[in-house]
Amino acid sequence: MIATLEYVDILDRSEQLGKMVMASDTMEAYKQTRAALHEDEDAQKLIQAFLDMKDQYEDVQRFGRYHPDYYNIMKNIRVVKREMDMNDKVAAYKMAERNLQTLLDEISQYVAESVSEQIKAPKDGAALTDSGCGCGSGGACGCAS
Results as ranks from 00 to 15, higher is better:
89 K>W: 02
63 F>P: 10
74 M>Q: 01
80 V>S: 00
63 F>A: 14
71 Y>F: 08
61 Q>R: 06
107 I>Q: 08
92 A>M: 00
102 T>S: 13
107 I>C: 09
64 G>S: 03
80 V>L: 00
105 D>I: 09
72 N>A: 15
94 K>C: 02
93 Y>H: 15
94 K>P: 00
86 M>C: 12
104 L>W: 06
66 Y>M: 12
67 H>F: 09
92 A>N: 02
98 R>H: 05
107 I>V: 11
84 M>L: 08
88 D>C: 03
58 E>A: 12
82 R>W: 11
100 L>D: 06
64 G>L: 02
89 K>I: 07
83 E>K: 11
92 A>Q: 11
85 D>P: 07
88 D>W: 03
111 V>C: 05
72 N>S: 11
84 M>Q: 07
111 V>W: 08
88 D>G: 00
69 D>C: 05
107 I>A: 09
98 R>Y: 04
89 K>S: 04
78 R>N: 07
87 N>W: 04
103 L>P: 08
110 Y>P: 03
87 N>G: 01
58 E>Y: 03
65 R>V: 04
64 G>W: 01
96 A>W: 01
59 D>R: 00
60 V>Y: 03
103 L>E: 13
71 Y>S: 12
84 M>W: 01
63 F>N: 11
106 E>V: 06
71 Y>P: 03
92 A>E: 10
81 K>D: 04
79 V>P: 05
70 Y>L: 02
59 D>T: 14
101 Q>L: 12
81 K>E: 00
64 G>A: 04
81 K>R: 14
100 L>N: 04
105 D>W: 07
75 K>T: 15
58 E>W: 03
91 A>I: 10
66 Y>F: 06
98 R>W: 05
62 R>G: 05
104 L>P: 04
90 V>Y: 04
91 A>T: 09
71 Y>H: 10
88 D>V: 08
86 M>D: 14
109 Q>W: 13
64 G>E: 00
66 Y>G: 06
88 D>F: 09
61 Q>L: 15
67 H>R: 00
111 V>P: 05
96 A>E: 08
76 N>R: 13
88 D>R: 11
90 V>T: 11
79 V>N: 10
87 N>Y: 04
111 V>L: 13
67 H>T: 07
72 N>K: 13
92 A>P: 02
101 Q>W: 11
59 D>M: 02
65 R>D: 04
66 Y>Q: 14
76 N>W: 05
60 V>Q: 05
88 D>L: 09
72 N>R: 15
67 H>V: 13
91 A>G: 06
76 N>T: 06
98 R>A: 07
59 D>Q: 11
71 Y>W: 10
63 F>L: 14
87 N>C: 00
77 I>V: 01
82 R>L: 11
67 H>I: 10
94 K>M: 10
93 Y>D: 05
110 Y>S: 13
74 M>S: 03
109 Q>N: 14
93 Y>L: 00
77 I>C: 11
88 D>N: 09
59 D>W: 01
82 R>K: 14
98 R>F: 05
109 Q>G: 07
97 E>T: 09
76 N>E: 08
100 L>K: 11
81 K>H: 00
94 K>H: 08
102 T>P: 06
69 D>W: 09
86 M>R: 14
91 A>M: 09
66 Y>I: 06
68 P>Y: 01
74 M>A: 09
82 R>P: 02
89 K>C: 08
108 S>G: 13
67 H>E: 06
